[in-house]
């Protein structure tokens, strides 16, 4: 196995173009586990940790441009109030050691349905910025990025450079079910965002379908009910049963399986509860912010 260690982004893109079999690695918290288990033997590893700009974030045209190499620990420490949903998700990632190494870009690269950042990115309408030496930059809405179990929309010569996330106009929530109180892979997860600026609702479901996915109908339902009842203006309390109905519709959007971590029935049940609670918390926060 070859170990490629570019020091600039241009070198990294060139290396990936030359070696499509090279597996990008940043924190290594997914890649090294896969290799230790012998699940994966790439022809080369493409180490991106020397490409300094990947580790930076900045405001860019009203959005946060989060370099693919920014760790969860830094998202929590530096972006906790700017990107609350993603920061909440980041707090549930592994242990302190894992959060010091693991990156949002790596989560996208692995594209596991259980990746913790995905529901938050989906709820926030994030956009993935990818680049190749041959064709330059393209932007992929995150909902289009996940194409299958542990597969994503990257072409063979492309690398993830950044994630673009608009700071929220309303509250965000993230909830995750695990069978212990820390250091656990999601049995199911749910991301939620209120977008009062455009009177929309964002959702993201984790670990309950072949890919991370949105609960599109549920989101449209809740936004519509809020609109119909004039709640976006009034910020009145949610009508009885609305959050629960939203929860049921989120549950209906999932397609989970039974596995060693939990049953499909339990995953569906927890999604309805998490969605109900998250929507209630977010709406209550929205009301308090008035």
């Amino acid at each position: 196995m070859d170990f490629l260690a570019p020091s600039t982004w241009a070198e990294a893109l060139a290396a990936k173009a030359e070696r499509p079999d090279a597996l990008p690695v940043a924190g290594g918290t997914d890649v090294m586990v896969e290799m230790n288990f012998d699940h994966r033997r790439p022809g080369a590893l493409l180490d991106l940790t020397r490409v300094a700009p990947l580790g930076e974030w900045a405001f860019d045209d009203g959005r946060v441009r989060l370099g693919a190499g920014v760790t969860y620990a830094r998202v929590i420490a530096e972006l906790g109030s700017t990107l609350p949903g993603l920061a909440m998700a980041s707090r549930t990632v592994g242990s302190p050691q894992i959060r010091n190494r693991g990156t949002v870009g790596g989560n996208l690269g692995a594209a596991s349905p259980a990746g913790d950042s995905h529901p938050a990115l989906l709820a926030a309408d994030a956009v993935v910025e990818v680049e190749s030496a041959a064709r330059g930059v393209r932007h992929v809405p995150v909902a289009d990025f996940y194409t299958g179990v542990k597969r994503n929309a990257l072409e063979q010569d492309e690398l993830i450079s950044a994630v673009l996330i608009a700071p929220p106009s309303g509250p965000q929530q993230f909830c995750k079910i695990g069978t212990r109180n820390a250091m656990v892979i999601a049995v199911s997860a749910f991301g939620f965002a209120l977008h009062p600026d455009r009177r929309a609702v964002g959702t993201g479901i984790g670990s309950a379908a072949p890919t991370p996915r949105r609960a599109t109908d549920a989101a449209a339902f809740l936004a519509g009910e809020l609109e119909a009842a004039g709640l976006w203006e009034s910020r009145a309390a949610l009508p009885e049963g609305l959050a629960a109905e939203f929860g049921r519709k989120v549950r209906d959007a999932a397609a989970p399986i039974d596995d060693v971590r939990g049953t499909a029935a339990y995953r569906l049940h927890t999604l309805s509860v998490m969605a109900r609670r998250a929507a209630t918390w977010a709406w209550d926060e929205h009301r308090r912010a008035a």
Partner: peptide
């Protein structure tokens, strides 16, 4: 219950 996973308040 759930800790930082934020499943209940």
């Amino acid at each position: 219950p759930g800790g930082a996973s934020n499943t209940t308040h």
